[in-house]
Design a protein around this nucleic acid. Structure first.
Lengths: 317, 317
DNA sequence: CTTGATTATGCTCATTCTTAGTATAATTAA
DNA sequence: TTAATTATACTAAGAATGAGCATAATCAAG
């Protein structure tokens, strides 16, 4: 145990951002180079903290304030040397939510639906047919190809836990684990590039656009974090316009979760938790009965500490 | 937006670990230098990944395998220059759980109850008197001292959310926020060192041992993560011996959560989830009726993907 | 102006999950 | 033999959840 803070070799820090916005019921993520990369930036000495570094750099580029920023993960990839060929790169990734998006339709910083990268994650219209028809059969082949019987069983169990049967037992939070499983099974192009550059694999990769480096993995991490977070913290308001109808809010949450929700119960929950208040106005932009407009009650975030415990704490003291 | 991974100034990586063990119903954390520091180590080039770096370094030092390792947080503290006086330090902290502990009673790597650092967090015997008697009055003074009325109200609300009234509305997961609030209010010695080195503050710091640098903050982050995690993932088994009684398990969880639990309901939950299986043996180490011994069903971790949703997903598909 | 389609919203109901017990069993220490 | 201690089974009230029916308010066609 080295008492004084130990000093290691020098490394270079790279910041990566998963920037999320929401338009027309699509969850969007900011990409570069024809969707092949997430925005990356330097961490320069002038920034007092990492978070302020991310904010400064993103806001300068997008001209829009970041509503919410959260650190995702830090890792050091041995396979990715710094471009100066010398130092190792440590990348720190962040999730950022923003309310408006810049330059819709622009080519280089471009907003894309994240379901282009993870088409199997969109279950808003029911079970994604990709899972049952394409993914599960291929994963099944992979499981059978394992050497030992024990390993076959283990693979099958992991497949079952993470993908269910294609209809039931789908847990939208497991997006990262699912991507990792596909990666391990060699069913995403990223694997091929890395392992079989010389000898391309025989299996057809699963649909879904790849990214360079590990960026699709970082994106999966961001989506997973966001999907988990909305269940106990109303961060989705950071993505909404100042006023909205309850159906718009529901569609937004569904876009993030990738799952349909029960309309009446959704309203009941939002209402019970006192998350919104009516503005008094209503809108007739929809076809049917005009919907009341609501705004988010910002105070609530301070008021509540929310937490869904699973352990039998005695008395709600 | 800089397309190619941008390169920033060189920095030095420091790894910090919150290593947790459990003995005699006390949650222990490994410390150095008379409890003033968490173990820190270098991240050297030979390690393929950060996680393997942490494992290697910790296991070499403690001679014990780490059951579970999880990244906590990364940050760059402008106030802490590298000891070579040149490069900036970026510290990456990890949480590690270990089943046995080395050298009980040793002086330098020393295991200490984490409640020595956060005495107000121990509510196992009911509401901690420290909160109502010492902390809340001092925080109240601090709130009143705010300049603007709006700021006073905001402070009071934060106090209320994070500390409740000293008896009710205590959320054990908010340990980090509570520490940060005390820090902001100048009620922990760490603040004094930093801000008022010349002119010591008039207020008496709240009981609880401080640490150097930001180590007590890192510890709070680790405890918070662990307290939150045990609610949806049975990581506490990493801290248990191979065989245990249900009461021992309950005491372990209570030590982590800092809250008492309802015995019968605890058992029912553990049982329902199929987390344990009887070994067939029982123990008479306790005074009363002998308890059955159980072991953890490791398979269950694979089988279950657990998740407590708060949103009204339609049908449990 | 009537009808059907569409969206909004109020309300009910069965089921499950929690919380907080009571009751009883099996031990040891005195 | 009794009191204290620990383990375990069982129950009942209340809250939260998931599903659906019913009704209201609007627009687009005919």
């Amino acid at each position: 145990m080295t008492p004084p803070p130990a000093i290691s070799d020098a490394v270079t820090i790279e910041l990566n951002a998963v920037l999320v916005a929401l338009t027309g019921n699509q969850p969007l993520v900011l990409t570069l180079e024809d969707g092949a990369l997430l925005p990356s930036g330097p961490f320069a000495t002038e920034h007092p903290t990492l978070q302020s570094g991310v904010r400064a750099w993103v806001e300068r580029q997008t001209q829009h304030p970041l509503g919410y920023v959260e650190q995702l993960y830090t890792f050091a990839d041995r396979n990715r040397p710094a471009s100066d060929g010398q130092r190792r790169v440590v990348s720190i990734s962040y999730l950022g939510l923003t309310r408006e998006r810049l330059s819709a339709g622009a080519r280089d910083p471009e907003w894309r639906s994240w379901y282009r990268y993870f088409p199997w994650e969109d279950w808003r219209a029911g079970p994604s047919p990709l899972v049952a028809q394409t993914i599960l059969p291929q994963l099944s082949t992979w499981a059978d190809a394992a050497g030992a019987v024990a390993q076959q069983r283990e693979r099958r169990q992991r497949i079952d836990v993470n993908f269910g049967d294609g209809v039931e037992n789908w847990n939208e939070d497991l997006i990262l684990q699912r991507y990792e499983l596909l990666y391990e099974a060699g069913l995403v192009p990223e694997t091929l590039q890395e392992r079989n550059r010389a000898a391309p694999s025989a299996v057809e990769p699963v649909p879904g656009m790849p990214m360079r480096h590990d960026h699709r993995r970082i994106l999966a991490t961001g989506i997973a974090r966001l999907r988990a977070k909305i269940k106990y913290r109303p961060v989705f308001f950071e993505l909404m316009p100042p006023e909205f109808t309850l159906l718009q809010l529901q569609r937004a949450v569904e876009a993030l979760a990738g799952r349909p929700m029960h309309k009446q119960n959704f309203r009941r929950l939002i209402d019970q938790q006192g998350l919104v208040e009516p503005t008094g106005a209503s809108t007739s932009e929809t076809r049917g009965r005009p919907a009341k407009l609501f705004r988010f009650r910002r105070e609530i975030v301070l008021e509540r500490s929310v937490a869904g415990t699973k352990l039998p704490l005695s008395r709600p003291i």
